[in-house]
Write a protein that binds this DNA or RNA. Sequence first.
DNA 1: CGCTGTAGCGCG
DNA 2: AAAGCGCGCTACAGCG
Length: 571
Amino acid sequence: MNSTAADPAFILVARDGVDYSATLIDAHGAERDEHVDAESWTAWVAEHERFTPRWVFNDVALWYPALLAAGVRITRAHDLRLCHAILRDSALVVDGESLRRAVAWNVAAGVEPSQQPAQALFELGNDGPRQVPGGGAEIRAEFDRQRAILDAADGRLRLLTVAESTGALIAAEMRSAGLPWDVASHEQMLAETLGERPVGGGIPSIMLQRADEVRALLGDLTVSLESQPKLLRALHRAGVLVESTSKWELEDQQHPVIQPLLEYKKLSRLYSANAWAWLAEWVKDDRFRPIYVPGGVVTGRWASSGGGALQIPRALRTAVRAAPGWRLIVADVAQLEPRVLAAMSGDVAMADAARGQDLYSGLVDRGIVATRQEAKIAVLGAMYGSTTGEAGRLVPRLRRAFPLAMAMVDQAAQAGEDGGVVTTLLGRSSPSVSAEWTTVQRAATDADADAGSEQRARRSARDRGRFTRNFIVQGTAAEWALAWLAGIRQGLAELGRTQGVAATASGATFAEVPHLAFFLHDEVILHVPEDLAEASAQVVRDAAARAATLLFGAFPLDFPLDLKIAADAGK
DNA sequence: CGCTGTAGCGCG
DNA sequence: AAAGCGCGCTACAGCG
């Protein structure tokens, strides 16, 4: 213990050849540098984690997996790459010029070095480097730029940068722990649905039979069902006059081939997306480990890269199964986005309709629409900018019932159509217009503009309006979800501590303690020891309440959860 | 042969 | 119902 310097509040880390360097900064700004040998690195981090500093990484995704693999968990971080992207564009930043000049930080998501193809470093497109700066001086300079901006900025941005960085930690932790997956049950379902898989691979039996049946009904025993042009021609020859092979068009047709064909398409999809090949690649040691990409969507939502974490068919959720003696907590927020819209716009009427119940039923109860289905169409239409069909007919009723909420999304749409930028509650701003977009708009205002260019301009303006309309809602919902996630993480850590099973620097790995195992926009799955299940469920509920308070203060609206404690994640 | 673009469908 | 937001993945087509 160093008795002359205060505990470090920030620790900036960088590679120094094969070794590491660290700058420790205390709360008064006093600082010192340390050199750390490669072999003592993880122990050094573990030793310094007891101060719970905010670890400053150029990119959490590049640093944290190796620490987790060594059993080292950290509590707080600042991800320079992710925060750069937010602060550079945020309308809440008074002067972001210093960040915009630091173009080297304008990079896409990092990839674990172990996963990175060797050439990736050299495949530099025109849009800049693919690798975030890693030198100590560069990291220090970027940290100083960001800290200066955050010190001068609205507190909401500090909240957002902390939430975003915590999300980066959670993404790595979830990949490290994995989602418990019952391979036997998955394979049994595949065998029942697709048929037995031929030894050595190949198309399974039921799928083959169904394909033969379809080809017979089409009167073409050799046509490839996987090729859209060939299938379309075969359908035409059989008298099914569709314009595409999509299921929503086929569903309308009356022909004996339709039912088997739709069934075949379903099987084919399951086979290629989530069958044996997927299992072999993504499920190891009974854990599904997708790659999450925090901040991967412009709105701030997470994306994924590999594993298709965001597209696991609901039918497959039964294969998510707790380990013996463990339970899953499966929770999702009911109608997160409309609730977020009600709260961020301060629309008390909309909050009244939603509070304590199903929001859609609340609309029916108030006579705004006739059925729950209509309510859903109207609300989604309002947030997505629908203008035609049933949604177009229903949205005006919402405009009368909830003028504040509708004014907020309508103004966001208008700003987008005008080429402006919109901003979420915590300060994530939409991208500014592209050069092409501006060119299209300019072309329409030329004196000699033809009808075609005016139409193109109007359409691209409306497209952008729908994007910015949705951006503020989807983006603020993503912020709520980050706050929820971070609250769950913190609650679980406290729970672990009081139960004496904390994953600390002592080396317990993540999967040995109650942990977050899955996250998808508005739902989470936790994997917890059975005796902590009830307490963990309460952590999830409490975190939802705290997220609401953190973002919306005392605004009178709750975010009810559908939550179950179960052995599997199926319905 | 590898690359890019698109259709289609899975998720919220 | 495929019009109205945001994604990723697979397979095929079409290109050089």
